[in-house]
Amino acid sequence: MASYREIAINGLWKNNPGLVQLLGLCPLLGVSNSVVNALGMAIATALVLACSNAAVALIRRQVTDAVRLPAFVMIIAALTTCIELLMQAFTYELYQILGIFIPLITTNCIILGRAEAFAAKNSVAHASFDGLMMGTGFGLVLLAIGAVRELLGTGALLANMHLLFGPIAANWQLVLFADYQGFLLAILPPGAFLVLGLLIALKNRIDAVVAERAKADQPEAAPAASRRVRVTGVIE
């Protein structure tokens, strides 16, 4: 059973759903044209992911292989419906903007994949934490794409945050570039592909640099190990 530290690292970086597994790209690219849209989808996905993992882990010993996948889908669909009803009740305008992408959480490959690959084989606590970390990793990618696209497209950040947090967030908008003419490509679907590609390239570059540094540190320990082998041979 993986430790909580390993689960967190996998969800946030090593096995990030958006940057490594490339799952859930439909909502990732479809609603990431602003921070508020990305944050709304990120919270909804993370809640469904964490709760569905917990529910699957709870019933994993009582469900047979013949009905396992249908049972998982029913659990995910029920939780998605709950999130949808909550958004209709408290953030109706944002729910209308996100549209079909909220019900489509049911078919999100991340959620069903984690239910089958992890939650069905681990305890409730570990499965819940895995769902939370995977959802957080996915949400961070969503927020990064949304922030870059909103900034490049409008020259501002945190616009329309009142749709998610109510009147208290009416003045949260930050205008970083006054008299900005806008960059239309950034807020159109092709802009989402470009920003996602740049984020993947950045992650791969960081991983390569870390691997190079780790490899550079290895030769220092190698001579000492070889000396120990030679000394042992002489003694024998």
Rank of each mutant, 00 (worst) to 15 (best):
T107Q: 06
G113E: 05
P190R: 03
P189G: 07
A222M: 14
L12K: 00
I206F: 13
V56N: 00
G137Y: 06
N10K: 12
V48E: 04
V210W: 09
S3R: 04
L196C: 10
A38G: 01
A55T: 00
F138S: 04
I43K: 06
I76A: 02
A221M: 13
R61S: 14
F118K: 03
F193D: 10
G155F: 06
G166K: 06
G146F: 03
L196G: 05
Y180W: 08
R60V: 01
L163R: 01
G197L: 14
E6T: 11
D65F: 10
E236V: 12
N171G: 11
S226E: 15
M74E: 06
A66Q: 13
A214S: 11
K203W: 08
T106D: 03
E6R: 10
V73R: 08
A42R: 00
P190Y: 05
A119Q: 00
E212G: 15
L47M: 13
M161H: 02
A192G: 08
P190C: 06
Q88E: 15
K215R: 15
M74F: 09
G146P: 00
R60M: 01
S123C: 03
G11Y: 01
L174K: 09
W13G: 03
S3C: 02
R60S: 00
N160H: 10
C82Y: 13
A159R: 07
P70K: 07
G153V: 07
I9Q: 10
A192N: 02
L86R: 07
N122H: 12
N10D: 14
M161Q: 05
I7G: 04
G99H: 05
L164D: 01
L49W: 01
I76P: 04
Q21F: 10
A178T: 11
A55I: 01
A50G: 06
A46D: 02
I235F: 14
A186H: 02
R213C: 15
L174Y: 12
L79I: 13
V48Y: 03
N122A: 01
F193H: 11
Q181G: 15
A224Q: 15
I9C: 07
L152R: 03
A169C: 08
A71I: 11
R61L: 09
A224T: 14
C51Q: 01
G153F: 00
Q218F: 12
I9T: 13
M87K: 07
A169R: 03
Q173Y: 06
A201K: 15
L199F: 11
L140D: 08
I235W: 13
Q62F: 13
G18F: 01
A211F: 11
L98M: 09
V36H: 03
